[in-house]
């Protein structure tokens, strides 16, 4: 399962969704596990973090802002 971690800035979430769709064309993927941080300046919520570390096999994040 691919974890997508959006920092909530700009249109990063739209980009990550599109990126997942493109990856799905290139590889056999299950559904994504998408996390949108509740604030751009703090880590994901503990529950989201647990889901990421327990369920995701790889993760994609962005940096910036």
């Amino acid at each position: 399962m691919v974890g997508l971690v959006a920092n909530g800035l700009g249109d990063g979430e739209i980009f990550l969704d599109a990126l997942y769709d493109e990856l799905a064309k290139l590889s056999d993927l299950q559904a994504p596990l998408k996390v949108v941080k509740s604030s751009v300046s703090i880590p994901p919520e503990p529950g989201d973090w647990s889901r990421l570390t327990e369920e995701a096999t790889v993760a994609i994040t962005g940096f910036g802002g």
Binding site: L9, G10, D11, G12, I14, F15, A18, L19, D21, E22, L23, K25, L26, S27, I60, G62, G64, G65
Partner: peptide, 23 residues
């Protein structure tokens, strides 16, 4: 541009470019 206020077209185009690199 560095701040991701991108149009949908820009998002889709960039995703297409980045997907093979991410993979």
């Amino acid at each position: 541009v560095p701040i991701a206020i991108w149009s949908k077209e820009e998002c889709l185009e960039l995703a297409e470019i980045m997907a093979p690199k991410v993979l």
